[in-house]
Amino acid sequence: MELQGRVKELQAQGLGLATISYDSREVIAAFVKQYGITFPMLSDPGSETIKRYGILNTVAVEAFGPNRDDPAVKAAVRQYVSEVGATPNMAGIAFPGTFILDRQGRVTSRLFEDFYVERNTVASVLKQLGVGGESVGATTVSTEHLEVTTYPSDATIAAGNRFSVVLDITPKRGMHVYAPGASSYRIVSVKITDPPIIRVLSPRYPASEIYHFKPLNERVPVYQKPFSLAQELVLEGDVKSQGTYRGKDSLTITGTLEYQACDDKICYNPVSLPLSWTVTLRPLVFQRPTVAR
């Protein structure tokens, strides 16, 4: 679990760490033993605390309700419950998310972003929250239309891991870029060009806003405030793919940020902004904890 690797960093920041899940103490104890977890993982078997926090995952129940065939429900299941679909025993889980609290238990920041999946983005959570983000290499690039700070969600990855490249994009004053749904403009996206052993998962976008472009009396979905894209990637873990990176310490991924920017008068040419990310490679086998059932 990536959180374990963050314990020292959090301690240095003066922050305690705990997780809460609906698992029984036995399941948690097995997980802790298997992965050498040193921080408290709390068991909330009846989901009472999860409910009191108001973050009970309703999608896990909807997956078996009257709307189970609704495409929106199916998409929500993939997003908030499990990539492989829900099973009835998943009812009672929380919406995955993180709170940073002060000594009095007041929320100083929180992250419940749609597309942030806890298991692969602890680093980016910390970075976004301004906590010890130095361990992942962030690059900031400025163009005439926007500023982008980009970093991999995890400093270290292993075969078969899912991780993200995160792009925090701030359009310059008066500028907007195009969100999915806009036709005849280049929609903002991340393209991965190399290496081929990186599989690109379907992108997820934050909510956009409708922009009224007066010269053409057009209404188009755009981003004009700072927004983040997290493009999920998988480092292929099959034997053949592993052969291409076995023995290497690091992996450099190259790609581009594709976008088109306009202000209230001019639409600029589409841009392909070259970017690269370097991650450390680690041999790792990640298994499900073995619990006597």
Binding site: L15, L17, A94, P96, T98, R103, E118
Partner: peptide
């Protein structure tokens, strides 16, 4: 669970 400045409380889906 508090450290000297506060805590990070993470709701995970499941350890299982």
């Amino acid at each position: 669970i508090m450290g000297r400045r506060g805590a990070m409380l993470v709701f995970i889906r499941s350890a299982d």
